Computed example of a mutant assay.
Amino acid sequence: MKQIKEKHSLAMRWCHWVNFPVLTIMIWSGMLIYWGDDEYKFTLFGHTFFKFFPDWFNTFFNIPRRLSEGMAWHFLFMWFFILNGIFYVAYTLISGEWRELAPQKKSFKEAWLVLLHDLHIRKMAPPQNKYNAAQRIAYTAIIIMGIGSAITGVAIYKPVQFYYLVWLCGGYHFARIIHFVLTLGYVFFFVIHIVQVFLAGWKNFSSAITGFEVVETKPAPIIEKKHDEEKS
């Protein structure tokens, strides 16, 4: 027997689908800004193994000499990013959705089992409610990363006016490093998240759009009533 079940609220879906293009624009515009001072690279014993980002990469994505354009886009969409994040956190706290998202004591152990199941090494997946253990950890980490990006971003943008945020981040240079690492973390999360969507199938993806999913339920047992042997 099939039954329609609500899975994601309108507010959760709204924040999810708004955040995706906003964060994509933030990453893209951030790369245009980073081109102006691309100092990060992997160097060992005086030899540079990798530079963020190679010249061929910048040329392919048409990044060079677009610093002012990147700043304009970045500083505009940061407000959408921050406001959407505030609304999302406020909603989860007020509605009680945080209980489904916050990791539990057993989440870190079960997250490993979820990974083994996704890699088809383990047959049985650990029991879950709305979100599994790996999702709880990942979605909570994204919230913390978003807060970190907002704090470090403001510290980099206005280091004099918000000197206390610069101090909190360990200085201007370290705030920029954190901001850069968090951006790489978003890209990594995007890749894993999209792969997980493909593995989960269309049913899981459609529920993130409509908010509902069709589930199979067992029919309720039929209780037979006793009848008189003789019918009038």
Rank of each mutant, 00 (worst) to 15 (best):
Q135N: 09
A111F: 11
A138L: 12
A141P: 05
F108L: 15
F45Y: 07
E69K: 03
I33E: 02
Y139R: 13
H47G: 00
G96R: 12
Y91I: 13
A125V: 00
W35S: 04
Y34S: 05
T48L: 00
P103A: 08
G85N: 03
P54C: 06
K51L: 03
F50P: 00
I121Y: 14
E97C: 01
Y131M: 08
G70I: 12
S68E: 15
H74I: 13
V114Q: 08
T140H: 00
Y139I: 15
T140G: 00
Y40C: 01
N132C: 11
L76T: 07
W112R: 13
D55F: 05
I94H: 06
E97K: 11
F77L: 14
F45E: 05
K109L: 07
H47Y: 04
A133N: 06
I137V: 12
W35Q: 03
G85D: 03
Y91T: 08
R122F: 06
A138V: 15
G85H: 02
R122D: 07
F50D: 01
L113G: 00
T43G: 00
W79M: 07
R65A: 12
I82W: 05
G85Y: 07
F45T: 02
V114D: 10
F80S: 14
A125M: 02
P64R: 09
A133Q: 04
T24K: 01
L44A: 13
G36H: 11
V18A: 00
L32P: 03
I94G: 04
K106H: 07
V89P: 07
E69D: 13
I63V: 09
A133G: 03
V22Y: 09
W35L: 00
V114M: 06
I94S: 04
E69Y: 12
M31Q: 03
G70R: 11
W73P: 03
S95E: 02
D118E: 10
T59M: 02
G36C: 02
P127G: 01
H120R: 15
T24W: 04
Y131E: 08
G96W: 09
Y91G: 10
R122K: 15
L67H: 14
F75S: 12
H117K: 12
I142C: 13
S95L: 03
L23I: 11
A134I: 06
P126C: 00
L32F: 05
F61W: 13
R66N: 15
Y88G: 01
P64A: 03
I142E: 12
I25A: 13
G36P: 01
Q104N: 09
N132P: 11
I137Q: 07
W79C: 04
